[in-house]
Simulated scan of single mutants.
Amino acid sequence: MRLATFVAFLAISTTASPVEKRADAFGIDISSHQGSNIKWSTLKSHGISFAYVKATEGRNYVNPYFKNHYDGAKKAGLLHGPFHFARPSASSGSAQASYFISHGGSWSADGHTLPGALDLEGGCAGLTKSAMVSWIKSFSSQYHSSEKRYPVLYITTNWWKSCTGNSAAFGSSHPLWLASWASSMGPLPAGWRSAAIWQYSKETGSTPGDQDRVSGGSAALKKLALGH
């Protein structure tokens, strides 16, 4: 990600519409691709109030910049949360949840830590729809047993339909992080009436990195952190 471009974009996007800025909380999600030199205080000054940081993938990868990213976001006063990139074909959901928790994925009821998120994308991993639902339930059950919170589920509506058969089994308990790179969210997956987080822009060329927003501003963001 080219940080100078990112900051310039934020300066425009977060000041062009004061009403929109008040109505939503803006955030980013990052991984090792962004490197270690992220100016967190600058991002905060340009309207960023939360960040999700990739912690793990499968059961054999830890983001080498995770601590740097996570501590940086925390020190700057941003709400922060970890996410796990799922590899459903590699090992069980419960095993990956345990790996995630052991390598930065835990949650704290401190009002600043967002619940861990499960990043589901990249095809159906050769699983049937029912097997994918079972895998997600396995991950979720293990995470909830340890952290007393259900993980946020990061998905696109198309992925959810293709890989779970549009299951409605998670909407009442799991916050939705919807990826929809358009001017509006579009249709939601079955079971959810709203999205807790909307990833509305993804890094492409000179476009800034992944950008997210929470409708309802800081109050809704705090509610997500506290789980009520």
Rank of each mutant, 00 (worst) to 15 (best):
L178G: 00
F9M: 14
F139Q: 00
S134P: 05
I101M: 08
K222E: 10
A76K: 10
S92V: 07
P151N: 04
Q96I: 05
S215A: 12
K74G: 05
A16S: 12
A95D: 14
A219L: 12
A196T: 05
E203I: 14
L10N: 08
T42D: 12
V62D: 00
A51N: 05
S201D: 08
G104I: 13
A182H: 12
F9N: 15
P115V: 14
L114W: 06
G27M: 01
S201I: 01
S201R: 07
P18C: 08
T157C: 09
T157M: 08
L127Q: 06
D119R: 02
N166S: 07
T5H: 07
S94A: 15
S138I: 04
K129N: 10
P187N: 09
C163M: 06
V7D: 06
L176K: 01
I136Q: 04
S194E: 11
L79S: 12
V19Q: 10
Y200S: 00
S91M: 08
S45E: 13
S31T: 10
A125I: 09
M185S: 12
A73C: 01
A73E: 02
S45C: 09
A8D: 13
A97D: 08
K222L: 11
L221N: 02
Y65S: 07
A190Q: 08
L3C: 11
P208G: 03
I136N: 00
I155H: 03
F6Y: 15
I155A: 05
